[in-house]
Amino acid sequence: MTQPFRDFAAVRAAALTLLAPDADMMAAARERDLQLTKPTGALARLEDCVFHLAAWQRRAIPRLDNIHIAIFAGNHGVAARGVSAYPAEVTVQMVANFERGGAAINQLARLHGATLSVAALELNRPTEDFSVAAAMTEADCLAAINAGATAVPSSCDLLVPGEMGIGNTTTAAALAAALYGGNAASWVGPGTGVNGDALASKIGVVDAALGFHAAWLGDPLEALRRVGGRELAALFGAVLMARLKSVPVLLDGFVVGAAAAVLARLNPTGLEHCLAGHVSAEPGHRRLLAELGKPALLDLGMRLGEGAGAAVAIGLLKAAVACHAGMATFAEASVSQRG
């Protein structure tokens, strides 16, 4: 299969030559909204979601018939530092659970009629411990970016990226700090449930990584390569390719957000095609969404990962689209408009 990006230079070039939203289709959706049998603005953020989908799907009445959930799994060398409450082999076990249909994301995909793909990224070859070395070579990082990019269907109405990887909230915290500044304590959270001395150790590992790689962290792609992971690189590749294909994206939690933030740092308009499905219980996620300027659709205290929070938010988007597409206009319903 031909890989979308031959090198980091091609990735950078793509990030700087992004499609803009379709202003005409957004305007048409707004005009239709003004004619529907409700007070102007009465559906509030649901209306904003419709306008967003219309602009990126490039049609005045958006659809959600073809939703794809793409999960990427990776293993992290830094997990050997005890940064997670679970052992690294859980990544492989959960991938098998996804493939058997036994995880939460499988039930949510089924509920919404979404297709689901799972890409296991060299789980038998964890990244390097990023506190003492670069997590990935450029070739490894590029391969993961391309794995994400090739997972995006061209005909998709909505992409929901998800992840699995023991230790990846540590990685997300390091990457967020690299991209937006601050020390480890301002980004690191409990992840799978570490606290006390284990949480202090996790913070120390991220601070060590930030110090070790400090000279290179001004470059978002280098930050991804040095303190990221394969699944984060794949998530970045998927979000970038979705933009190149004008596919709207519903972001999940802290790990997905940190990966997507690489595109935002390469291009300030890079995440215009994305909505934030939810804000997780991981403390750094709320801060990250503020940096990205992405208010979450849901705040349920979830911390599962695997795309689950965003998948729950699909229901809100479906409600928004159903109202926009199915409501009668004032003329059709013979209802008087406001004078």
Rank of each mutant, 00 (worst) to 15 (best):
P161D: 00
S246N: 14
L271W: 11
A55C: 14
V95A: 04
G113Y: 01
L116D: 03
M26H: 06
G301W: 09
G229C: 03
L235F: 10
A185C: 05
N124I: 00
T91R: 11
G229R: 02
A276V: 06
G74F: 05
H285S: 05
G82A: 04
R226G: 08
F236Q: 14
L275D: 11
R287F: 04
G307I: 01
A9Q: 15
P62H: 14
S280R: 10
G102A: 05
A290P: 08
V249S: 09
L43F: 13
L221E: 07
G191I: 04
F72L: 03
A27E: 13
A264T: 02
C156V: 01
R286P: 03
H273R: 12
A134G: 14
D24Q: 13
A96N: 08
G339R: 04
R243N: 13
P220E: 12
L159R: 04
E222I: 01
W187F: 10
A310L: 09
R243M: 03
R63Q: 15
S336V: 10
P21W: 11
F98W: 06
V132T: 15
V255S: 09
L316W: 04
R32F: 04
F72V: 05
A79Q: 15
I69C: 03
L64W: 00
A144Q: 01
E306C: 11
H213A: 05
F330V: 07
A20S: 15
A139H: 08
A276W: 08
L159S: 06
A208I: 00
A28G: 02
A311Q: 02
R58F: 03
L36C: 01
L158E: 10
V279E: 14
R243H: 13
E31F: 02
S336D: 15
G257K: 06
G315L: 03
W216C: 01
T37C: 08
T40P: 04
A20P: 14
A144V: 04
L317F: 06
R81D: 02
D48Q: 14
S246H: 09
P190N: 03
D197R: 06
F212W: 07
T91W: 12
P248D: 10
A70Q: 00
G315Q: 12
D48Y: 05
H285P: 12
R81V: 02
E222T: 10
Y180W: 15
A214Y: 01
E47T: 12
A104Y: 03
P62Q: 13
R230F: 11
D65R: 11
R338M: 11
H285Q: 09
E122I: 00
A209D: 12
T17Q: 14
E272Y: 02
Y180C: 07
L64V: 00
L250D: 11
M26I: 03
H112G: 08
G253L: 01
P268Y: 04
R6Q: 15
V152D: 10
R6A: 15
P190F: 03
P62W: 12
Q337A: 09
A70L: 01
